[in-house]
Simulated scan of single mutants.
Amino acid sequence: MEINLKYFASVREAIGQPGERVALPDGVNTVGEVRAWLIQRGAPWAEALSEGRALRMACNQVMCTAETPVAAGAEVAFFPPVTGG
């Protein structure tokens, strides 16, 4: 299944691109599994998306959790928490 990935702010800077279209391997069916699969790709994804790093995730422009299912053609976005003041 193919999905679109979007990277924002410091995640985009670390990865070096605003997004990409990827074909997910079998067994990658949730946003959390997408993140884990990207981390396994190695640098720069491993650093930018590491489990210890605070990240927000969205699926089809709706904030979501790691358990959110991903369907073919979905847009999955990763970005740092937003603060204001």
Score class of each variant (00 low, 15 high):
Met1Ile: 09
Met1Glu: 09
Glu2Trp: 11
Ile3Arg: 03
Leu5Ile: 05
Lys6Pro: 11
Ala9Glu: 12
Ala9Met: 13
Arg12Ala: 06
Arg12Asn: 02
Arg12Thr: 03
Glu13Ser: 11
Glu13Val: 06
Ile15Met: 00
Ile15Cys: 00
Ile15Gly: 00
Gly19Pro: 01
Glu20Cys: 01
Glu20Pro: 06
Glu20Ser: 06
Arg21Cys: 03
Arg21Val: 06
Val22Met: 05
Val22Arg: 07
Ala23Asn: 11
Pro25Met: 01
Asp26Arg: 12
Asp26Phe: 14
Asp26Ala: 14
Gly27Ala: 10
Val28Asp: 06
Val28Gly: 08
Val28Lys: 06
Val31Leu: 07
Val34Gln: 06
Val34Pro: 13
Ala36Gln: 14
Trp37His: 01
Trp37Phe: 04
Trp37Pro: 00
Leu38Ile: 02
Leu38Tyr: 03
Ile39Ser: 04
Gln40Ile: 14
Gln40Ala: 14
Arg41Lys: 05
Arg41Trp: 00
Arg41His: 00
Gly42Gln: 02
Gly42Pro: 08
Gly42Ser: 10
Gly42Tyr: 01
Ala43Ile: 10
Trp45Ala: 08
Ala48Ser: 05
Ala48Gln: 02
Leu49Cys: 04
Ser50Arg: 14
Arg53Asp: 04
Leu55Ile: 09
Arg56Ile: 12
Met57Leu: 12
Ala58Phe: 05
Ala58Trp: 08
Asn60Thr: 02
Asn60Asp: 05
Val62Ser: 15
Met63Asn: 10
Cys64Ile: 09
Cys64Asp: 07
Ala66Phe: 04
Ala66Tyr: 07
Glu67His: 04
Glu67Leu: 12
Pro69Thr: 14
Pro69Ser: 13
Val70His: 14
Val70Met: 12
Val70Asn: 08
Ala71Trp: 11
Gly73Glu: 07
Ala74Ser: 11
Ala74Phe: 05
Val76Ala: 11
Phe78Cys: 04
Phe79Ile: 14
Phe79Met: 13
Pro80Ser: 03
Pro80Ile: 05
Pro81Cys: 09
Val82Asn: 12
Val82Arg: 08
Val82Leu: 15
Thr83Trp: 03
Thr83Pro: 04
Gly84Gln: 07
Gly85Ser: 09
